[in-house]
């Protein structure tokens, strides 16, 4: 068994070195080596290949502008019929980005719903493996909510845990190596919606718990003429919390694309995905959740 594993590792290593050498040989000349099967015959040929980084960035991050400049559609991943439906509803210009965004959001939602159904089927007194994982996660955030909001408001935990799992899944879906899988949080609309939701939840809770007049008086503290500043501060909460998530994910995606195209997509993208995909994604979703919790705590506790 162990010998077999070592042999597999050696084979993988040899393949890796071979790939690096091939890329180094063919990369500098704008040529690519194609290996494959065609009509039942093995072929190995050297083809001319141009890779325009600017065009790729425009195609990935500004599909609307790409449509204006190129007059040809970038590759559409997913159902063509659904895209045509989007073209009728949103118009030619906005169809592409909204189609990609809503498709990825739909996939994320499907993953979340199916995971929750699967875990619900395996709930026992003697915990099963997925149950332990999700109970650990829930307990982790329950302790935070207890620390921040107090013992009697533990019922905020489901909102907080849902926020974390949703944003985390959104960030993680970008590292799945399927063409067209982009992070939904890369689009500003998703973090902005989540941020507006969190801030409006804060104020609705403030009105419900403190009463309208006390909540309204909160704007005129410590001095009455500071009211406009306080209002702008409340707005900037939503802006800062959402732009932080959006900027981190978008910046990471652009850095990943640029650096991986500089090294001709060899080996390094894995390390970049580990840092910008997994590490930054987890930290940012955690920070978003903690900040939303802190805003709620600052509003409803005296």
């Amino acid at each position: 068994m162990a010998e077999k594993r070592i042999a597999t590792r050696k084979l993988l290593l040899v393949l890796l070195v071979l790939e690096i050498m091939l890329v180094l040989v063919s990369g500098g000349l704008n040529r690519a080596l194609q290996i494959g099967f065609e009509n039942g015959r093995f072929y190995l040929r050297n083809v001319e290949k141009t890779y325009d980084l600017q065009k790729k960035i425009t195609e990935d991050f500004q599909p609307d502008r790409y449509l204006q400049e190129e007059d040809e559609l970038p590759e559409i991943y997913g159902s063509e019929r659904l895209y045509n439906f989007f073209r009728e509803v949103f118009g030619e210009k906005n169809a592409l980005s909204s189609f990609q965004l809503l498709r990825m959001l739909f996939i994320v939602n499907c993953i979340l719903i199916s995971i929750s159904l699967l875990v619900r089927r395996h709930l026992f007194k003697k915990p099963s493996k997925p149950q332990v994982l999700f109970e650990l996660l829930y307990k982790f955030f329950e302790d935070f909510v207890k620390d921040t909001l107090g013992e009697e408001r533990v019922n905020f935990t489901p909102y907080v845990v849902t926020l974390f799992i949703f944003i985390w899944t959104c960030n993680m879906i970008g590292i799945v190596p399927i063409p067209g899988f982009i992070e939904p949080t890369r689009n500003l609309n998703v973090p902005l919606g989540l941020g507006i939701m969190a801030v409006s939840l804060v104020h609705i809770l403030g009105i419900r718990i403190k009463g309208f007049w006390k909540w309204f008086k909160g704007f005129f503290e410590p001095l009455p003429f500071l009211a406009p500043l306080n209002m702008v501060g409340e707005l900037s909460k939503a802006v800062s919390i959402s732009f932080r998530l959006f900027g981190n994910i978008l910046g990471g995606a652009i850095i990943m694309l640029v650096v991986s195209s500089l090294v001709k997509f060899v080996v390094l993208p894995i390390g970049l995905n580990l840092f910008f995909g997994i590490f930054v994604g987890t930290i940012q979703s955690f920070v978003f959740t903690m900040l939303a919790l802190t805003y709620i705590g600052a509003e409803i506790t005296e």
Binding site: F243, F246, G247, F286
Partner: peptide
Amino acid sequence: MLVGQAVSESTGIYSLVIAL
């Protein structure tokens, strides 16, 4: 520390957004 760093990173992220 991680939460504090992410919060203090936000000004850098703003400049990244402006640059983009």
